[in-house]
């Protein structure tokens, strides 16, 4: 299962470290797309890609050296993460993904319309409240799902056309014949 993801990440790293390899094929694609006249400058003279590889090497080397140096630090006894003295931290207090993105989601609230259940705690001795917020996928949940369900509902409205009565089926044939003959005569 991880192999597939592994290959993909290696590919990304490869392109990152040696982008020059990608420049040629990309140029060919762009040239075929843009037809004969060369609209876009080729990738090479726009950006000097070989430097990226050159700079990637010191980045990794320095990183490795520092890693070695930092890892060699004398280690004290392993302690649980410091929770500012709170004695009974539990898993539910951990920083979740939605709280991580809460800043942006509140900021872009007018676009994303997050679904929020439960809200502020009121009063001095409030009883326990639940809070849940979820940002539905704008395309999938807001457009595709309701749209397709609506379409399916509309289409199922047409189901009476195949209601099982044979005489109606024969009527279809008669009507098509009449329509075509009249259309032909007109």
């Amino acid at each position: 299962m991880l192999a597939a993801m592994g290959i993909l990440s290696l590919a990304c790293a490869g392109i990152g470290l040696v982008p020059v390899l990608m420049a040629k094929p990309l140029d060919r694609v762009v040239s075929t797309l843009s037809g004969t006249e060369q609209v876009l400058p080729s990738l090479d003279n726009l950006v000097n890609l070989s430097w990226l590889t050159v700079l990637a090497i010191p980045l990794l080397v320095v990183g490795f050296i520092l890693w070695k140096w930092a890892a060699a630090t004398p280690r004290g006894k392993e302690q649980p993460t410091w929770g500012c003295g709170y004695l009974a931290p539990n898993a539910r207090m951990q920083y979740t993904a939605s709280s991580f993105a809460d800043g942006l989601v509140q900021g872009m609230g007018w676009v994303l319309w997050p679904k929020i259940q439960g809200g502020r705690v009121r009063g001095f001795f409030p009883f326990p409240r639940r809070f849940q917020s979820h940002v539905p996928d704008p395309v999938l949940d807001r457009v595709a799902d309701p749209g397709l369900n609506g379409a399916a509902f509309l289409l199922s409205g047409l189901r009476f056309l195949q209601a099982g009565h044979m005489s109606i089926y024969l009527m279809y044939i008669l009507l098509t014949l009449l329509v075509l003959l009249i259309w032909m005569v007109v």
């Binding site: 289409l155 199922s156 056309l161």
Partner: peptide, 8 residues
């Protein structure tokens, strides 16, 4: 017509 009756 086929599409109408294939859905669901």
């Amino acid at each position: 017509w086929a599409m109408v009756f294939m859905v669901r």
